[in-house]
Write a protein that binds this DNA or RNA. Structure first.
Lengths: 186, 186
DNA sequence: CACTAGAAAGACCGATCGTTCTCCCTAGTG
DNA sequence: CACTAGGGAGAACGATCGGTCTTTCTAGTG
């Protein structure tokens, strides 16, 4: 029986891809490197994924699911105001993580300029979902214009995730926190 | 004599590189493609640039200079408040351009994960300059915390440039405009 | 005029890209 | 036991990667 630590080849591929794509970029990581670090053969790779782009899409879908869970947990047992601050704090905290390298979706979009590409669809899904979360929270806490508030929060989110990589993450987190508190009614 | 329209090979290379790198991504455009579209030979390429990365750096420096000029013009003959709104409008308007494909520097950073890379230095320079512009304007306009205000404006800038590519540019421009007006004292 | 710098044209380099292939072996199922 | 699905190992595909080379030609300078 296969031990729990060394997962199935498909899982190892996905984990390795997530790590390498995020840390080094997508085009910069070749299939050779992927199969080598995942300890999987090329044949096995193409048995599970039709092509590299499908692995990229799977990587982003996995990232999206993880974020949805984290955001979901942050909302639990909180008033709308607390929940919104907690949700945006998830963003700010993420920028301060050791292995933070920007937003997976923004980084991926930079490497997939064609907006009709399947990878871009995964990105759009994630962004649409997050905007919806923010709009709902803004509405629940009685913001006079929840749609606008949500869109401003998305601007702050994108900016924070970018600034977390290119500027000082701790300063970015603090800036984001203050901006969020100023945005929502007291 | 060389006509004015067909510029020197170095200029043609830089123009072609700017167009292709921005539209399609940096790693996605090879040297073959560059010299072919610039109507320049490989030998000429390497006579003017030590390597592809140097052309990338030149591309970003050129973009930075163009932006500095545009921002400089937007500030002319205006009160601090008008100037700051005009500067941020340059950002919002850019997202609505036909060939808009996000922020050159953010996109490039996604493809250069190593923060010690020379290309990242060009990016850092540009960001530091823009933060300074915003800080100065916020101070001139009497904002109680110009440094914080400038950092929030940078978040909004980064978010707008990203949203302009991934979301609806017209909505992003409007959202940015309202957010800026709400941020600065009336 | 002779000289030279720079560009054109294109062959060439080893390495790597994403992808497909064959062959063999082993673990799980009936 | 026999059978099979799936993984390991690795060769091979054409294409492209960034970069170097030689050769020829032309425009500008003295």
């Amino acid at each position: 029986m296969r031990s729990a630590r060394e997962a199935h080849p498909k899982d190892r591929l996905l984990r390795t891809a997530s790590r390498l794509f995020y840390a080094e970029g997508i085009h910069a990581v070749g299939v050779d490197r992927l199969v080598s670090e995942a300890a999987v053969t090329r044949a096995t790779f193409y048995r599970h994924f039709p092509g590299k782009d499908d692995l990229v899409a799977a990587y982003l879908k996995t990232a999206s699911e993880a974020i949805r869970e984290a955001i979901g947990r942050a909302r639990e047992d909180k008033t709308p105001r607390e929940a919104l601050i907690a949700v945006m704090s998830v963003i700010g905290d993420a920028t301060c993580a050791d292995d933070f390298r920007g937003c997976q979706f923004i980084n991926a979009a930079a490497e997939y300029p064609d907006s009709d590409h399947p990878v871009r669809a995964v990105i759009d899904d994630h962004r649409t979902w997050f905007l919806g979360v923010l709009r709902d929270l803004a509405a629940e806490l009685g913001h006079p214009d929840p749609d606008h508030a949500a869109r401003v929060l998305v601007l702050l989110r994108d900016g924070a995730l970018q600034g977390g990589e290119l500027d000082d993450p701790a300063v970015v987190r603090e800036t984001l926190h203050r901006a969020v508190e100023d945005l929502i009614p007291h």
